[in-house]
């Protein structure tokens, strides 16, 4: 379920202390929201405003006085007189380690600049765990059993890209298991349930039933999983192919907002255009109509715009 912003008319407020400053936050707000309201930035990976918090990545952890362990800022609600530290040695240690553990096991090279920024800010050194090891077949791993890697190597989730349809690819070597795609495919947006987390432990993975190809699954190609993926593990096939050909260049891309022409809902589309060709379509997360989600037509049905035949950008298909 999408979470509507807290905009009730008269909300009780709660007073708490974050990093020494007194903060008033509406009752029911999270520590993350309270910290944001006073300009304290908190790194997040598995959190997205439009999805139910799963607090799985633990990069947003903060120290709450009186709590034995650190708590996830994205999910923990503020309480009166809570004393929160977001920059203590314990917090910085856990954030650095979480980032290191992820970066040492997952390919984060397509993750946005924001994530690269976290790695630098917290001084993550993923290389200190050893040489990245090639991963065995993860899709058939049996829960409760594993084969250790050779000394000096660090286990990773490396595996081949899954390309089984014309619209998007799944590159789970880049997957940090944030659960966002599963939530977007499920009750938080699409209610299709084509994918779920399968397996257990380090061998946990996003999968269709029995690892079947997407065309045999329940997938409706809404692409909302791509929209929420924070690391580029899920990607438009158009982008994947251009990257493979070395043609992808975001510095040469423009973004144009328009309204989807297909039906009366009126979803806002953001067209990513490179060299006067649409290369992918997204929708802004803060859009009231879409919350960033689209359907197969809005997300993938834009080829007609380019079927001009005259080599110029007319927008009207040749008769």
């Amino acid at each position: 379920m999408s979470v509507a912003p807290l905009r009730l008319v008269s909300r009780r407020t709660v007073e708490l202390t974050i990093d020494g400053q007194s903060v008033r936050a509406p009752e029911g707000a999270t520590i993350l929201q309270a910290a944001q309201s006073v300009g304290i930035a908190t790194p997040t990976l598995c959190y997205l405003e439009t999805l139910t918090p799963v607090n799985a990545c633990r990069v947003c952890v903060v120290e709450v006085e009186g709590s034995r362990v650190l708590v996830p800022a994205c999910a923990r609600k503020v309480e009166p007189n809570m004393v929160v530290h977001t920059n203590s040695a314990r917090v910085r240690h856990s954030r650095r380690m979480v980032l290191e553990l992820l970066a040492s096991s997952v390919d984060l090279s397509y993750a946005p600049a924001e994530v690269q920024g976290y790695l630098a800010e917290y001084g993550a050194q993923p290389e200190r765990y050893g040489q990245p090891a090639a991963a065995p077949d993860r899709d058939h791993a049996h829960a409760g059993h594993h084969t250790p890697v050779a000394d000096g190597y660090a286990a990773t989730v490396a595996q081949p890209v899954k390309v089984d349809n014309d619209l998007y690819v799944r590159d789970y070597a880049r997957c940090i298991l944030c659960y966002k795609c599963v939530e977007a495919c499920g009750v938080d947006a699409q209610n299709t349930f084509a994918i779920a987390v399968a397996g257990r432990g380090f061998e946990a993975r996003i999968s269709t039933e029995f690892n079947h190809i997407l065309p045999d699954s329940a997938c409706v190609y809404c692409g909302n999983c791509i929209g929420v993926c924070p690391t580029g593990a899920l990607m438009f096939k158009s982008e994947h192919d251009m990257r493979a050909a070395g043609a992808w260049d975001e510095s040469r891309q423009t973004r144009t907002d328009t309204i989807c022409p297909y039906c009366g809902v009126g979803c806002t589309l953001q067209l990513h255009v490179q060299d006067n060709r649409i290369v992918k379509v997204t929708s802004p997360q803060d859009n009231d109509v879409t919350s960033g989600h689209l359907c197969v037509k809005g997300r993938f049905g834009w080829q007609f715009v380019q079927n001009r035949g005259d080599g110029r950008g007319g927008g009207v298909a040749a008769p």
């Binding site: 990545c57 633990r58 380690m97 979480v98 553990l101 040492s104 409760g144 432990g201 380090f202």
Partner: peptide, 16 residues
């Protein structure tokens, strides 16, 4: 082997 795999500290920490 017994980590459920949900959170990063345990999922990857137990491996390392």
């Amino acid at each position: 082997d017994e980590s459920c795999g949900q959170c990063v500290p345990c999922r990857v920490g137990t491996v390392r």
